[in-house]
Design a protein around this nucleic acid. Structure first.
Lengths: 231, 231
DNA sequence: GCAAAAGTGTTAACTTTACACCCATGT
DNA sequence: ACATGGGTGTAAAGTTAACACTTTTGC
Protein backbone atom coordinates (compact mmCIF):
# COMPACT_ATOMS: atom_id res chain seq x y z
CA UNK A 1 0.00 0.00 0.00
CA UNK A 2 2.62 2.57 1.10
CA UNK A 3 0.39 5.59 0.45
CA UNK A 4 0.75 8.92 2.23
CA UNK A 5 -2.20 10.87 3.61
CA UNK A 6 -4.58 11.72 0.83
CA UNK A 7 -7.74 13.77 0.87
CA UNK A 8 -10.92 11.91 1.75
CA UNK A 9 -13.34 11.53 -1.11
CA UNK A 10 -17.04 11.73 -0.62
CA UNK A 11 -18.69 8.37 -1.05
CA UNK A 12 -18.56 7.75 -4.72
CA UNK A 13 -18.52 5.18 -7.50
CA UNK A 14 -16.31 4.18 -10.33
CA UNK A 15 -16.16 1.81 -13.25
CA UNK A 16 -13.33 -0.65 -13.87
CA UNK A 17 -12.85 -2.66 -17.05
CA UNK A 18 -11.37 -6.08 -17.61
CA UNK A 19 -10.45 -5.89 -21.29
CA UNK A 20 -9.77 -9.18 -23.01
CA UNK A 21 -7.77 -9.76 -26.15
CA UNK A 22 -6.38 -12.89 -27.75
CA UNK A 23 -2.96 -13.04 -29.32
CA UNK A 24 0.01 -15.40 -29.65
CA UNK A 25 -2.42 -18.15 -28.76
CA UNK A 26 -2.98 -16.60 -25.36
CA UNK A 27 -5.80 -14.82 -23.57
CA UNK A 28 -4.57 -11.35 -22.64
CA UNK A 29 -5.81 -8.59 -20.39
CA UNK A 30 -5.14 -4.89 -20.92
CA UNK A 31 -3.37 -3.26 -17.99
CA UNK A 32 -2.21 0.26 -17.40
CA UNK A 33 0.44 1.81 -15.28
CA UNK A 34 -1.25 4.45 -13.18
CA UNK A 35 -0.15 8.05 -13.48
CA UNK A 36 -2.03 9.37 -10.45
CA UNK A 37 -2.40 8.88 -6.76
CA UNK A 38 -3.49 6.70 -5.14
CA UNK A 39 -1.39 3.77 -6.29
CA UNK A 40 0.60 6.00 -8.62
CA UNK A 41 2.92 3.88 -10.79
CA UNK A 42 1.13 0.71 -9.79
CA UNK A 43 -0.27 -1.57 -12.43
CA UNK A 44 -4.04 -1.65 -12.61
CA UNK A 45 -6.94 -2.33 -14.89
CA UNK A 46 -8.39 0.75 -16.59
CA UNK A 47 -11.02 2.48 -14.54
CA UNK A 48 -12.20 5.83 -13.39
CA UNK A 49 -14.82 7.68 -11.45
CA UNK A 50 -18.18 8.00 -13.14
CA UNK A 51 -19.19 11.54 -14.08
CA UNK A 52 -22.37 13.00 -12.63
CA UNK A 53 -24.02 13.18 -16.04
CA UNK A 54 -22.95 9.78 -17.24
CA UNK A 55 -24.57 6.34 -17.16
CA UNK A 56 -22.51 3.43 -15.95
CA UNK A 57 -22.52 1.82 -19.39
CA UNK A 58 -21.41 5.09 -20.98
CA UNK A 59 -18.62 5.47 -18.47
CA UNK A 60 -17.35 2.00 -19.27
CA UNK A 61 -17.50 2.73 -23.00
CA UNK A 62 -15.67 6.03 -22.48
CA UNK A 63 -12.87 4.43 -20.50
CA UNK A 64 -12.44 1.79 -23.15
CA UNK A 65 -12.42 4.38 -25.89
CA UNK A 66 -9.89 6.57 -24.15
CA UNK A 67 -7.56 3.66 -23.92
CA UNK A 68 -7.98 1.90 -27.21
CA UNK A 69 -9.86 4.22 -29.55
CA UNK A 70 -12.38 1.41 -30.03
CA UNK A 71 -16.08 1.95 -29.64
CA UNK A 72 -18.20 -0.81 -31.19
CA UNK A 73 -17.18 -3.48 -28.76
CA UNK A 74 -18.75 -6.20 -26.66
CA UNK A 75 -18.94 -4.65 -23.22
CA UNK A 76 -20.89 -5.96 -20.29
CA UNK A 77 -21.22 -5.31 -16.60
CA UNK A 78 -20.44 -8.33 -14.47
CA UNK A 79 -20.11 -7.45 -10.78
CA UNK A 80 -19.83 -4.60 -8.33
CA UNK A 81 -17.23 -4.45 -5.61
CA UNK A 82 -17.84 -2.45 -2.50
CA UNK A 83 -15.78 -3.64 0.42
CA UNK A 84 -15.29 -0.92 2.98
CA UNK A 85 -11.55 -0.59 2.71
CA UNK A 86 -11.07 -1.17 -0.99
CA UNK A 87 -10.13 2.44 -1.76
CA UNK A 88 -7.63 4.29 0.46
CA UNK A 89 -9.27 7.70 0.01
CA UNK A 90 -12.81 6.86 0.98
CA UNK A 91 -15.76 4.74 0.18
CA UNK A 92 -15.79 3.93 -3.51
CA UNK A 93 -18.01 1.25 -4.93
CA UNK A 94 -16.86 0.11 -8.34
CA UNK A 95 -18.92 -1.47 -11.06
CA UNK A 96 -16.82 -3.89 -13.09
CA UNK A 97 -17.28 -4.48 -16.81
CA UNK A 98 -15.61 -6.83 -19.17
CA UNK A 99 -14.88 -5.97 -22.77
CA UNK A 100 -13.80 -8.21 -25.60
CA UNK A 101 -11.82 -6.69 -28.39
CA UNK A 102 -10.20 -7.79 -31.59
CA UNK A 103 -6.68 -7.40 -30.39
CA UNK A 104 -5.09 -6.65 -33.73
CA UNK A 105 -7.31 -3.64 -34.38
CA UNK A 106 -5.89 -1.38 -31.78
CA UNK A 107 -2.53 0.27 -31.36
CA UNK A 108 -3.01 1.25 -27.70
CA UNK A 109 -2.72 5.01 -27.84
CA UNK A 110 -4.12 6.17 -24.52
CA UNK A 111 -5.66 9.59 -25.00
CA UNK A 112 -6.01 9.98 -21.28
CA UNK A 113 -3.80 11.18 -18.50
CA UNK A 114 -4.50 8.58 -15.87
CA UNK A 115 -2.46 5.94 -17.64
CA UNK A 116 1.26 6.33 -18.03
CA UNK A 117 1.27 3.42 -20.44
CA UNK A 118 -0.95 0.54 -21.42
CA UNK A 119 0.11 -3.02 -22.20
CA UNK A 120 -1.22 -6.54 -22.55
CA UNK A 121 -0.54 -9.16 -19.92
CA UNK A 122 -1.32 -12.87 -20.24
CA UNK A 123 -4.47 -13.66 -18.26
CA UNK A 124 -2.69 -16.31 -16.23
CA UNK A 125 0.29 -14.11 -15.32
CA UNK A 126 -1.28 -10.99 -13.92
CA UNK A 127 1.08 -9.08 -11.60
CA UNK A 128 0.06 -7.49 -8.32
CA UNK A 129 -2.43 -4.76 -9.12
CA UNK A 130 -3.71 -1.63 -7.39
CA UNK A 131 -6.83 -1.64 -5.19
CA UNK A 132 -8.72 -4.96 -5.34
CA UNK A 133 -8.08 -5.26 -9.05
CA UNK A 134 -6.66 -8.76 -8.81
CA UNK A 135 -9.95 -9.89 -7.34
CA UNK A 136 -11.86 -8.09 -10.10
CA UNK A 137 -9.74 -9.68 -12.80
CA UNK A 138 -10.23 -13.11 -11.26
CA UNK A 139 -13.98 -12.74 -11.23
CA UNK A 140 -13.92 -11.34 -14.76
CA UNK A 141 -12.03 -14.34 -16.09
CA UNK A 142 -14.46 -16.69 -14.37
CA UNK A 143 -17.33 -14.85 -15.97
CA UNK A 144 -15.79 -14.93 -19.42
CA UNK A 145 -15.25 -18.67 -19.07
CA UNK A 146 -18.89 -19.18 -18.23
CA UNK A 147 -20.27 -16.86 -20.86
CA UNK A 148 -18.13 -18.04 -23.72
CA UNK A 149 -19.76 -21.45 -23.56
CA UNK A 150 -23.25 -20.12 -24.12
CA UNK A 151 -22.71 -16.94 -26.10
CA UNK A 152 -20.65 -16.73 -29.26
CA UNK A 153 -18.08 -14.40 -27.76
CA UNK A 154 -15.11 -16.23 -29.17
CA UNK A 155 -15.58 -14.53 -32.52
CA UNK A 156 -15.20 -11.12 -30.91
CA UNK A 157 -11.66 -12.03 -29.97
CA UNK A 158 -10.53 -13.07 -33.44
CA UNK A 159 -10.08 -11.16 -36.67
CA UNK A 160 -13.13 -10.99 -38.86
CA UNK A 161 -11.88 -13.92 -40.93
CA UNK A 162 -10.46 -16.83 -39.01
CA UNK A 163 -9.68 -20.48 -39.42
CA UNK A 164 -11.44 -23.23 -37.52
CA UNK A 165 -8.16 -24.21 -35.95
CA UNK A 166 -7.70 -20.70 -34.58
CA UNK A 167 -11.20 -20.79 -33.15
CA UNK A 168 -10.70 -24.21 -31.62
CA UNK A 169 -7.42 -23.12 -30.12
CA UNK A 170 -9.11 -20.10 -28.55
CA UNK A 171 -11.68 -22.30 -26.85
CA UNK A 172 -9.02 -24.70 -25.70
CA UNK A 173 -7.05 -21.90 -24.09
CA UNK A 174 -9.98 -20.19 -22.41
CA UNK A 175 -11.73 -23.35 -21.26
CA UNK A 176 -8.41 -25.00 -20.36
CA UNK A 177 -9.18 -28.32 -21.98
CA UNK A 178 -8.41 -30.17 -25.17
CA UNK A 179 -11.10 -30.43 -27.81
CA UNK A 180 -11.36 -33.07 -30.52
CA UNK A 181 -10.81 -31.45 -33.90
CA UNK A 182 -13.42 -33.38 -35.85
CA UNK A 183 -16.11 -33.10 -33.22
CA UNK A 184 -15.45 -29.40 -32.80
CA UNK A 185 -15.77 -28.73 -36.53
CA UNK A 186 -18.89 -30.82 -36.83
CA UNK A 187 -20.56 -28.95 -34.00
CA UNK A 188 -19.52 -25.44 -34.87
CA UNK A 189 -20.34 -25.79 -38.55
CA UNK A 190 -23.59 -27.50 -37.59
CA UNK A 191 -24.88 -24.24 -36.15
CA UNK A 192 -24.84 -22.81 -39.67
CA UNK A 193 -23.48 -19.53 -38.34
CA UNK A 194 -20.15 -19.53 -40.13
CA UNK A 195 -19.79 -18.42 -43.74
CA UNK A 196 -16.84 -19.66 -45.72
CA UNK A 197 -14.83 -16.93 -47.32
CA UNK A 198 -12.07 -17.11 -49.99
CA UNK A 199 -9.32 -19.49 -49.07
CA UNK A 200 -6.31 -17.62 -47.78
CA UNK A 201 -4.11 -17.96 -44.77
CA UNK A 202 -1.05 -17.50 -47.00
CA UNK A 203 2.53 -17.43 -45.89
CA UNK A 204 2.44 -20.62 -43.86
CA UNK A 205 4.55 -23.54 -44.87
CA UNK A 206 1.75 -26.05 -44.87
CA UNK A 207 -1.65 -26.52 -46.42
CA UNK A 208 -3.56 -23.21 -46.19
CA UNK A 209 -6.71 -23.28 -44.11
CA UNK A 210 -10.18 -22.17 -45.15
CA UNK A 211 -11.25 -18.88 -43.66
CA UNK A 212 -14.68 -18.31 -42.15
CA UNK A 213 -16.56 -15.42 -40.72
CA UNK A 214 -19.27 -15.35 -38.11
CA UNK A 215 -22.76 -14.41 -39.29
CA UNK A 216 -23.87 -12.17 -36.45
CA UNK A 217 -27.19 -11.19 -38.01
CA UNK A 218 -28.19 -14.79 -38.45
CA UNK A 219 -27.27 -15.50 -34.84
CA UNK A 220 -29.38 -12.59 -33.58
CA UNK A 221 -32.33 -13.87 -35.58
CA UNK A 222 -31.95 -17.46 -34.37
CA UNK A 223 -31.48 -16.34 -30.79
CA UNK A 224 -34.84 -14.61 -30.93
CA UNK A 225 -36.47 -17.94 -31.74
CA UNK A 226 -35.02 -19.73 -28.74
CA UNK A 227 -31.80 -21.07 -30.27
CA UNK A 228 -28.96 -21.44 -27.78
CA UNK A 229 -25.35 -21.39 -28.90
CA UNK A 230 -23.47 -23.84 -26.73
CA UNK A 231 -19.94 -25.21 -26.97
CA UNK B 1 -43.61 10.53 -10.58
CA UNK B 2 -45.61 13.39 -9.03
CA UNK B 3 -42.97 14.24 -6.42
CA UNK B 4 -42.46 17.69 -4.91
CA UNK B 5 -39.08 19.34 -4.57
CA UNK B 6 -36.83 17.26 -2.41
CA UNK B 7 -33.32 17.92 -1.16
CA UNK B 8 -30.52 16.83 -3.47
CA UNK B 9 -28.51 13.93 -2.19
CA UNK B 10 -24.83 13.71 -2.74
CA UNK B 11 -23.91 11.00 -5.19
CA UNK B 12 -24.52 7.82 -3.30
CA UNK B 13 -25.32 4.13 -3.52
CA UNK B 14 -27.96 1.80 -2.30
CA UNK B 15 -28.87 -1.87 -2.25
CA UNK B 16 -32.18 -3.28 -3.49
CA UNK B 17 -33.36 -6.84 -2.98
CA UNK B 18 -35.55 -9.04 -5.12
CA UNK B 19 -36.75 -11.57 -2.56
CA UNK B 20 -38.24 -14.76 -3.94
CA UNK B 21 -40.63 -17.12 -2.22
CA UNK B 22 -42.74 -19.99 -3.47
CA UNK B 23 -46.25 -20.60 -2.27
CA UNK B 24 -49.64 -21.71 -3.57
CA UNK B 25 -47.76 -23.17 -6.50
CA UNK B 26 -46.57 -19.71 -7.49
CA UNK B 27 -43.31 -17.81 -7.54
CA UNK B 28 -43.71 -14.75 -5.33
CA UNK B 29 -41.73 -11.60 -4.76
CA UNK B 30 -41.67 -9.64 -1.53
CA UNK B 31 -42.80 -6.04 -1.94
CA UNK B 32 -43.17 -3.22 0.52
CA UNK B 33 -45.22 -0.10 0.64
CA UNK B 34 -42.82 2.78 1.17
CA UNK B 35 -43.18 4.92 4.23
CA UNK B 36 -40.81 7.68 3.17
CA UNK B 37 -40.22 10.16 0.42
CA UNK B 38 -39.44 9.88 -2.39
CA UNK B 39 -42.18 7.63 -3.71
CA UNK B 40 -43.89 7.58 -0.33
CA UNK B 41 -46.78 5.10 -0.37
CA UNK B 42 -45.61 3.57 -3.62
CA UNK B 43 -44.95 -0.10 -3.83
CA UNK B 44 -41.31 -1.04 -4.15
CA UNK B 45 -38.83 -3.78 -3.51
CA UNK B 46 -36.97 -3.53 -0.22
CA UNK B 47 -33.86 -1.44 -0.45
CA UNK B 48 -31.91 1.24 1.31
CA UNK B 49 -28.81 3.34 1.26
CA UNK B 50 -25.64 1.56 2.25
CA UNK B 51 -24.04 2.75 5.45
CA UNK B 52 -20.50 4.12 5.37
CA UNK B 53 -19.20 1.29 7.51
CA UNK B 54 -21.04 -1.50 5.75
CA UNK B 55 -20.14 -3.83 2.89
CA UNK B 56 -22.62 -4.24 0.07
CA UNK B 57 -23.27 -7.86 1.00
CA UNK B 58 -23.84 -6.89 4.62
CA UNK B 59 -26.24 -4.17 3.61
CA UNK B 60 -28.26 -6.64 1.57
CA UNK B 61 -28.31 -9.09 4.46
CA UNK B 62 -29.38 -6.34 6.85
CA UNK B 63 -32.25 -5.22 4.66
CA UNK B 64 -33.45 -8.78 4.31
CA UNK B 65 -33.19 -9.34 8.04
CA UNK B 66 -35.05 -6.16 8.89
CA UNK B 67 -37.88 -7.28 6.72
CA UNK B 68 -38.14 -10.97 7.41
CA UNK B 69 -36.06 -11.74 10.48
CA UNK B 70 -34.18 -14.31 8.38
CA UNK B 71 -30.45 -14.42 8.19
CA UNK B 72 -29.11 -17.71 6.80
CA UNK B 73 -30.42 -17.26 3.34
CA UNK B 74 -29.24 -17.58 -0.24
CA UNK B 75 -28.41 -14.03 -1.22
CA UNK B 76 -26.50 -12.94 -4.26
CA UNK B 77 -25.69 -9.77 -6.12
CA UNK B 78 -26.85 -9.80 -9.71
CA UNK B 79 -26.65 -6.36 -11.32
CA UNK B 80 -26.09 -2.68 -10.65
CA UNK B 81 -28.35 0.01 -12.00
CA UNK B 82 -27.03 3.49 -12.49
CA UNK B 83 -28.99 5.44 -15.04
CA UNK B 84 -28.66 9.15 -14.51
CA UNK B 85 -32.28 9.91 -13.73
CA UNK B 86 -33.24 6.81 -11.81
CA UNK B 87 -33.51 8.58 -8.45
CA UNK B 88 -35.34 11.90 -8.19
CA UNK B 89 -33.10 13.27 -5.44
CA UNK B 90 -29.74 12.83 -7.04
CA UNK B 91 -27.37 10.33 -8.44
CA UNK B 92 -27.86 7.00 -6.75
CA UNK B 93 -26.37 3.83 -8.12
CA UNK B 94 -28.05 0.76 -6.74
CA UNK B 95 -26.63 -2.72 -6.43
CA UNK B 96 -29.35 -5.32 -6.81
CA UNK B 97 -29.38 -8.64 -4.97
CA UNK B 98 -31.72 -11.56 -5.13
CA UNK B 99 -32.60 -13.65 -2.13
CA UNK B 100 -34.36 -16.99 -1.96
CA UNK B 101 -36.25 -17.82 1.16
CA UNK B 102 -38.34 -20.62 2.50
CA UNK B 103 -41.58 -18.77 2.37
CA UNK B 104 -43.29 -20.58 5.22
CA UNK B 105 -40.59 -19.71 7.72
CA UNK B 106 -41.29 -16.06 7.98
CA UNK B 107 -44.16 -14.05 9.26
CA UNK B 108 -43.14 -10.71 7.72
CA UNK B 109 -42.67 -8.50 10.74
CA UNK B 110 -40.78 -5.53 9.38
CA UNK B 111 -38.62 -4.12 12.16
CA UNK B 112 -37.86 -1.10 10.09
CA UNK B 113 -39.49 2.21 9.47
CA UNK B 114 -39.06 2.51 5.74
CA UNK B 115 -41.76 -0.03 5.01
CA UNK B 116 -45.34 0.65 5.92
CA UNK B 117 -46.19 -2.94 5.20
CA UNK B 118 -44.70 -5.89 3.39
CA UNK B 119 -46.53 -8.42 1.25
CA UNK B 120 -45.99 -11.12 -1.35
CA UNK B 121 -46.94 -10.53 -4.97
CA UNK B 122 -46.96 -13.17 -7.71
CA UNK B 123 -43.86 -12.75 -9.87
CA UNK B 124 -45.94 -12.44 -13.01
CA UNK B 125 -48.30 -9.82 -11.60
CA UNK B 126 -46.02 -7.15 -10.23
CA UNK B 127 -47.71 -3.74 -10.01
CA UNK B 128 -46.08 -0.47 -10.95
CA UNK B 129 -43.18 0.10 -8.58
CA UNK B 130 -41.12 3.06 -7.39
CA UNK B 131 -37.87 4.10 -9.12
CA UNK B 132 -36.72 1.63 -11.76
CA UNK B 133 -37.76 -1.29 -9.58
CA UNK B 134 -39.83 -2.94 -12.29
CA UNK B 135 -36.72 -3.16 -14.40
CA UNK B 136 -34.75 -4.57 -11.46
CA UNK B 137 -37.41 -7.19 -10.78
CA UNK B 138 -37.48 -8.19 -14.43
CA UNK B 139 -33.74 -8.69 -14.53
CA UNK B 140 -33.86 -10.55 -11.21
CA UNK B 141 -36.41 -13.02 -12.51
CA UNK B 142 -34.36 -13.60 -15.64
CA UNK B 143 -31.36 -14.28 -13.49
CA UNK B 144 -33.20 -16.69 -11.22
CA UNK B 145 -34.44 -18.58 -14.28
CA UNK B 146 -30.91 -18.96 -15.56
CA UNK B 147 -29.36 -19.85 -12.24
CA UNK B 148 -31.94 -22.36 -11.13
CA UNK B 149 -31.02 -24.62 -14.02
CA UNK B 150 -27.40 -24.93 -12.97
CA UNK B 151 -27.48 -24.42 -9.23
CA UNK B 152 -29.73 -26.33 -6.87
CA UNK B 153 -31.64 -23.25 -5.77
CA UNK B 154 -35.04 -24.85 -6.00
CA UNK B 155 -34.56 -26.50 -2.63
CA UNK B 156 -34.08 -23.12 -0.99
CA UNK B 157 -37.64 -22.25 -1.92
CA UNK B 158 -39.26 -25.34 -0.42
CA UNK B 159 -39.62 -26.58 3.11
CA UNK B 160 -36.79 -28.76 4.31
CA UNK B 161 -38.81 -31.88 3.49
CA UNK B 162 -40.60 -31.88 0.18
CA UNK B 163 -42.14 -34.28 -2.29
CA UNK B 164 -40.80 -34.80 -5.77
CA UNK B 165 -44.05 -33.53 -7.20
CA UNK B 166 -43.66 -30.27 -5.31
CA UNK B 167 -40.15 -29.90 -6.61
CA UNK B 168 -41.19 -30.69 -10.16
CA UNK B 169 -44.01 -28.22 -9.94
CA UNK B 170 -41.62 -25.53 -8.79
CA UNK B 171 -39.39 -26.05 -11.79
CA UNK B 172 -42.36 -26.09 -14.10
CA UNK B 173 -43.57 -22.76 -12.78
CA UNK B 174 -40.21 -21.02 -12.82
CA UNK B 175 -39.03 -22.39 -16.14
CA UNK B 176 -42.51 -22.05 -17.64
CA UNK B 177 -42.57 -25.46 -19.26
CA UNK B 178 -44.00 -28.88 -18.59
CA UNK B 179 -41.68 -31.59 -17.38
CA UNK B 180 -42.22 -35.34 -17.73
CA UNK B 181 -42.75 -36.86 -14.30
CA UNK B 182 -40.78 -40.05 -14.82
CA UNK B 183 -37.85 -38.37 -16.53
CA UNK B 184 -37.70 -35.68 -13.88
CA UNK B 185 -37.58 -38.21 -11.06
CA UNK B 186 -35.00 -40.32 -12.81
CA UNK B 187 -32.73 -37.33 -13.30
CA UNK B 188 -33.11 -35.68 -9.94
CA UNK B 189 -32.72 -38.91 -7.98
CA UNK B 190 -29.81 -39.83 -10.23
CA UNK B 191 -27.75 -37.01 -8.75
CA UNK B 192 -27.84 -38.85 -5.43
CA UNK B 193 -28.37 -35.57 -3.60
CA UNK B 194 -31.79 -36.31 -2.14
CA UNK B 195 -32.24 -38.33 1.00
CA UNK B 196 -35.54 -40.04 1.58
CA UNK B 197 -37.10 -39.23 4.89
CA UNK B 198 -40.06 -40.84 6.70
CA UNK B 199 -43.14 -41.07 4.56
CA UNK B 200 -45.61 -38.41 5.51
CA UNK B 201 -47.56 -35.82 3.58
CA UNK B 202 -50.64 -36.66 5.66
CA UNK B 203 -54.02 -35.07 5.36
CA UNK B 204 -54.35 -35.45 1.63
CA UNK B 205 -57.09 -37.58 0.18
CA UNK B 206 -54.85 -39.68 -1.99
CA UNK B 207 -51.78 -41.82 -1.71
CA UNK B 208 -49.24 -40.00 0.51
CA UNK B 209 -46.02 -39.00 -1.20
CA UNK B 210 -42.51 -39.80 -0.06
CA UNK B 211 -40.65 -36.88 1.45
CA UNK B 212 -37.07 -36.04 0.61
CA UNK B 213 -34.52 -33.56 1.74
CA UNK B 214 -31.61 -32.03 -0.12
CA UNK B 215 -28.14 -33.07 0.99
CA UNK B 216 -26.33 -29.76 0.83
CA UNK B 217 -23.06 -31.02 2.25
CA UNK B 218 -22.85 -33.73 -0.37
CA UNK B 219 -23.55 -31.19 -3.07
CA UNK B 220 -20.78 -28.89 -1.84
CA UNK B 221 -18.36 -31.79 -1.85
CA UNK B 222 -19.33 -32.95 -5.34
CA UNK B 223 -19.23 -29.42 -6.69
CA UNK B 224 -15.63 -29.14 -5.59
CA UNK B 225 -14.78 -32.11 -7.81
CA UNK B 226 -16.28 -30.60 -10.93
CA UNK B 227 -19.82 -31.93 -10.68
CA UNK B 228 -22.45 -29.68 -12.25
CA UNK B 229 -26.05 -29.80 -11.14
CA UNK B 230 -28.17 -29.23 -14.21
CA UNK B 231 -31.90 -29.56 -14.77
C1' DG C 1 10.23 -35.76 -50.66
C1' DC C 2 9.59 -34.09 -46.15
C1' DA C 3 7.58 -31.35 -42.54
C1' DA C 4 3.48 -29.17 -40.91
C1' DA C 5 -1.09 -28.25 -40.27
C1' DA C 6 -5.81 -28.98 -42.85
C1' DG C 7 -9.48 -31.62 -43.74
C1' DT C 8 -12.72 -35.49 -43.40
C1' DG C 9 -16.74 -40.18 -41.33
C1' DT C 10 -18.03 -43.92 -38.71
C1' DT C 11 -19.15 -46.34 -34.62
C1' DA C 12 -20.06 -47.01 -29.68
C1' DA C 13 -21.52 -44.92 -25.40
C1' DC C 14 -24.42 -42.10 -23.31
C1' DT C 15 -28.34 -38.93 -22.65
C1' DT C 16 -32.78 -37.46 -23.54
C1' DT C 17 -37.44 -38.06 -24.77
C1' DA C 18 -41.86 -40.20 -25.16
C1' DC C 19 -45.16 -42.84 -23.26
C1' DA C 20 -49.38 -45.82 -19.72
C1' DC C 21 -50.63 -48.32 -16.00
C1' DC C 22 -51.16 -49.85 -11.12
C1' DC C 23 -50.93 -48.08 -6.07
C1' DA C 24 -52.21 -46.05 -1.57
C1' DT C 25 -54.95 -43.19 0.72
C1' DG C 26 -59.44 -40.30 2.20
C1' DT C 27 -64.12 -39.88 1.61
C1' DA D 1 -66.03 -48.03 -4.88
C1' DC D 2 -64.33 -43.92 -6.58
C1' DA D 3 -61.51 -39.89 -6.94
C1' DT D 4 -56.93 -38.14 -6.49
C1' DG D 5 -52.33 -37.70 -7.03
C1' DG D 6 -48.03 -41.19 -6.23
C1' DG D 7 -45.01 -44.18 -8.09
C1' DT D 8 -42.64 -46.97 -11.69
C1' DG D 9 -39.60 -48.94 -16.73
C1' DT D 10 -38.54 -49.47 -21.46
C1' DA D 11 -37.46 -48.41 -26.15
C1' DA D 12 -36.41 -45.01 -29.84
C1' DA D 13 -34.13 -40.81 -31.01
C1' DG D 14 -30.61 -37.82 -30.53
C1' DT D 15 -26.17 -36.30 -28.87
C1' DT D 16 -21.52 -36.75 -27.58
C1' DA D 17 -17.06 -39.02 -27.60
C1' DA D 18 -13.44 -41.64 -29.48
C1' DC D 19 -10.54 -42.46 -33.05
C1' DA D 20 -6.58 -42.31 -38.03
C1' DC D 21 -5.53 -41.35 -42.41
C1' DT D 22 -5.16 -38.44 -46.73
C1' DT D 23 -4.41 -33.61 -48.59
C1' DT D 24 -2.13 -29.33 -49.62
C1' DT D 25 1.23 -26.25 -49.26
C1' DG D 26 6.39 -24.28 -48.46
C1' DC D 27 10.87 -25.49 -48.21
Amino acid sequence: MAEKELPRLRSSFSVDCVIFGFDDGELKILLIERNKQPFKEWKAIPGNLVNDDEDLDSAAARILYELTGLSEVYLEQFHSFGEIGRHPQGRVVTVAYYAIIKRFETGLHPITNYAKKAFWAPANQIPELAFDHNQIVKKGIERLRNEIRREPLGFELLEENFTLTQLQHLYEVILEKNIDKRNFRKKILGFGLLTEVKKKRTGVSHRPADLYKFNKKKYQALKGTGFVFEI
